[in-house]
Simulated assay, not measured.
Amino acid sequence: MVIEFLKFKVDPNLRENYIQKDAEIWTAALAEYPGFLGKEVWINPDDPTEVIFLIRWTTLELLQAIPTSDAEKIEQRFAQAVGHTHELVQSGVYQVQELSQSA
C-alpha cells in the first residue's frame, strides 16, 4: 500500500466548505479509479489553516496510472467550486512498510 500525503493551507472561514467540496469532487472522482482504498482528512487543532489529506492506494503504479488530463479536469471542477481558497504546501507519496511480529 502507498499513501499520498497532501498538506494544504486553507482560509479557516472557508475550511468546512473546502473539505465538503473536496469530498464531493476529488474523493468521488478518485473512487472511480482502480487501486483507490480510501481517504482521510486531518485537521490541525492548533492551526485552523492546515488541512491534510491521506489517500490510500493499493500500489504506486495504480496511483500513477491516473491520466494527467483527468486530474487536470477534476482540479478545474474543484477550483470552480471553491475558488482560490487553498495552497498546496507539501506533498509526497510514501510506501507503507509492514512490520513483522516476532513470536
Rank of each mutant, 00 (worst) to 15 (best):
P34T: 09
E72R: 10
R56D: 02
F78L: 04
R56N: 06
R15M: 12
A79Q: 10
E61G: 15
A81V: 00
E40L: 11
V82C: 03
P34S: 10
G92T: 02
V89C: 07
E16C: 04
A23V: 08
T68W: 00
W26F: 15
Y33V: 12
Y94T: 00
Q90D: 15
P12C: 03
L6R: 15
L60T: 03
S91Q: 15
D11M: 02
E4L: 11
Q20R: 13
L6M: 14
L60H: 01
A29G: 01
E98G: 05
K39M: 01
D46H: 13
R15E: 13
D22I: 13
E98M: 08
K73Q: 13
Q64R: 15
Y94H: 06
V41L: 05
I43V: 14
Y33E: 15
T68N: 00
I3S: 02
P34R: 09
I19T: 13
A71C: 05
R77T: 01
S100R: 14
L99Q: 04
L62V: 10
Q97V: 09
I43C: 06
Q64G: 13
A29Q: 12
L60G: 02
K9Y: 14
L88K: 01
E40S: 04
D22N: 13
S69D: 15
I43S: 09
E50K: 14
Q80W: 07
K9R: 15
A29L: 03
P45Q: 05
Q101I: 12
K7S: 15
L14P: 04
E72G: 01
Y18N: 02
I43K: 14
Q80H: 10
Q95T: 09
T49F: 07
L30K: 13
L30E: 10
F8L: 14
V2S: 09
W57L: 02
G83R: 07
R77G: 01
I52N: 01
G35H: 09
G83M: 08
P12I: 01
N13G: 14
V10E: 04
E61P: 08
E24L: 15
L62F: 08
E61M: 11
Q97E: 01
P67W: 02
D70C: 04
V82K: 02
E24H: 11
V51T: 13
D46Y: 08
Y94V: 04
K73D: 05
K21D: 00
I66S: 10
Q97D: 05
R56C: 02
N44Y: 01
R15C: 10
A28F: 08
S69I: 10
H86Q: 10
A29R: 10
L63G: 08
S102G: 05
K7Q: 15
